[in-house]
Write a protein that binds this DNA or RNA. Structure first.
Lengths: 353, 353
DNA sequence: CGCGATCCAGCAAACGTTTTCGCGATTTGC
DNA sequence: GCAAATCGCGAAAACGTTTGCTGGATCGCG
């Protein structure tokens, strides 16, 4: 069933049907009504591919993430999809699973499908692919790693803000031996977080020497804390490069009978959903996935709607500390009579079935 | 840049270019080479929409889930996407967020995009929409709720198998007061789980009278356990309709100073990733998301490849218990001298950064 | 009442492919 | 060595839309 069938039955031309469907106002109300009637009767839906072919726009955005099962991403995908629905866009989802080959094929497929834009929300990126994509003139949005050229938007993450808050929060709780568990050194984002930690510590006159390298996974957190705990004078607080690391720390602390937050304060980074379900709930630096997705989508939309406009191509996402229950006054201070104080924030809504 | 441009530069017809690209073997190797050369030089990619238009097949599958942020789904999406990539399909993702309106628009959009098939992996479904979709002759796959007609595949979940294992595991650990926390009563899947529990209890001569209704979210689990704990003779083991509920139970138990597994055994259902990161790791009935996605994809592929074939349209997914560390011998038994025994299973690989 | 302006519906071209069909050239068979 | 069969390429017709252009009808105005 196509537009011609409708035209035939409504006794008008296909041009008129097309105009009716696209709500062109200049068509006779009489005809409009007749056409709609037939359309509804037959349950006709326009063929988007044919439409895209002539329009040159597909109303599809590509969304590339690292790994859907990584707890950082579902919220991003959900928000992105919500916005897509609102704006009558479709979304083509792919994950790279950290495989450059896969990334390449993902990009190729997106181009073949003639997407109107691609949001590359993965951390870590092949330089070659960036160039490649740019040659294609597809609007792009990156986080942290994009080049500064027209048609490419960049979301810069302000890591320092949240990490500074975390460090100062810990310092205020009388912690002076604050450790940092970093992420894989090949990730720009991990390095940026580590740098932010150093800066924040320097700012308040503490030396950032307790740094150990993890892998952004639970195992790395466990191993790292194992090392730290074996030190002659172990840290009283640990700041982690991401939440999974922090969860590893908590797990290992549990095994070692170190109580959180009484004997150890732990702070994560990212604020994934999971952090609300740990015991105790994890204090963490929030890098709002919701905001990130929103910014990315808006950027793409801008790029598509006014491709020529001389707009700003760089956006910023600020991080900030959210307090839950994994931090408290340092043990030394508490033994000198101070009362334990844990600050609790309101929790977000829970997960549905 | 289109196929004609290539044809022009290679001094052949568009037909030949098309044949080369689609690897039709009857074309002269000489020409083939020449065409490929031009294609590579120009970085030409065929326009999938034009292709889909004439082929009548889009090589796109729709995937409808309830909510991407629900921990049950990311693994499904990931597996589905992996299979899509392997088979040269693209996937259009939508979530219904439990809104029938949204579900309807999702379906409409999929049809407009002329998807080759839709996997509806949501729990709970509008009857009206099923009929609607069937009228469209799009291959479909459902879980649990689909009608038994050609072109529609159904994945039936065998809830009883896993739940029976769980009940018998608990009984073997000397638990006799085993409670069940059910899910929302409007979900077919929740009711099926509850029924399975009753059956399994009956089978071993225990009466399934400790049943309280939750909401498949952490809050519901907390509330339900609160009730159960206040009973004059509270249960020593709790089986939950899903993992989030179990996590709620563990959280509330923690608040109430009930130790797991020493004073209370807890079993979940689903086996979402999260269960490995709780303390202690949760024993749960696995309903493999990986398998589910795999079956769904295969079913769709079958339907598309041999639409006329008289194949079976119903598939089965079996559930089974996976032991972790949230269950142990009942307290009464332990006080009579038996040693505490916790069984630990191997854990899956952790989450990447 | 006549003429130009205005309006609106339809014709047909275009979008970028695939594929049928026909045709000339080459190979095969006797 | 010639007819017949085979082979490989190209012309052109689809696929289902949108839209610029055209022309007939209606309208307004003098």
């Amino acid at each position: 069933m196509d537009i011609r069938e409708i035209a035939r039955r409504a006794k008008v031309s296909t041009a008129t049907v097309s105009r009716v469907i696209n709500r062109v106002p200049t068509v006779d109300p009489q005809l409009t009504k007749k056409v709609w009637k037939v359309v509804d009767e037959l349950g006709y839906y326009p063929n988007t591919q044919a439409r895209a072919l002539v329009l040159g726009r597909s109303r599809i955005f590509g969304l590339v993430v690292s790994e859907i099962t990584n707890p950082f991403f579902p919220e991003i995908v959900q928000t992105f999809e919500n916005l897509a629905v609102e704006n009558n866009y479709e979304i083509l989802l792919t994950s790279t699973v950290h495989d450059p080959k896969r990334m390449e094929s993902a990009v190729r497929r997106m181009i073949e499908r003639r997407v109107d834009g691609v949001a590359i929300l993965t951390f870590g990126m092949e330089e070659s692919l960036i160039d490649y994509l740019r040659g294609r003139k597809v609007p792009l949005v990156f986080v942290d790693v994009g080049p500064d050229v027209p048609g490419v938007a960049n979301i810069r993450i302000n890591y320092l803000n949240g990490i500074r808050q975390a460090v100062q929060h810990l310092a205020a709780m009388r912690h002076s031996r604050i450790a940092f568990i970093s992420g894989p050194q090949h990730l720009k984002s991990a390095i940026a977080r580590c740098d932010a930690f150093k800066t924040a510590m320097d700012e308040i006159g503490l030396s950032p020497d307790l740094i150990v390298i993890g892998d952004h996974r639970m195992e790395g957190g466990m191993k790292a804390f194992h090392e730290l705990h074996a030190l002659s004078s172990p840290p009283t607080a640990v700041l982690c490069s991401n939440d999974m690391t922090a969860i590893g720390v908590m797990r290992e602390a549990y095994e070692q009978n170190v109580r959180i937050p009484e004997n150890l304060s732990v702070v994560g980074f990212d604020d994934i959903r999971l952090t609300e379900f740990t015991t105790p709930p994890l204090t963490t630096v929030q890098m709002s996935q919701h905001e990130l997705a929103k910014i990315a989508f808006r950027a793409l939309l801008n790029e598509v709607d006014q491709p020529q406009a001389q707009q700003r191509h760089t956006y910023e996402l600020v991080t900030s500390l959210v307090l839950r229950r994994s931090t408290a006054l340092a043990a030394a201070s508490r033994s000198s009579g101070a009362s334990i104080k844990t600050i609790r924030s309101n929790t977000r809504k829970g997960l549905a079935p």
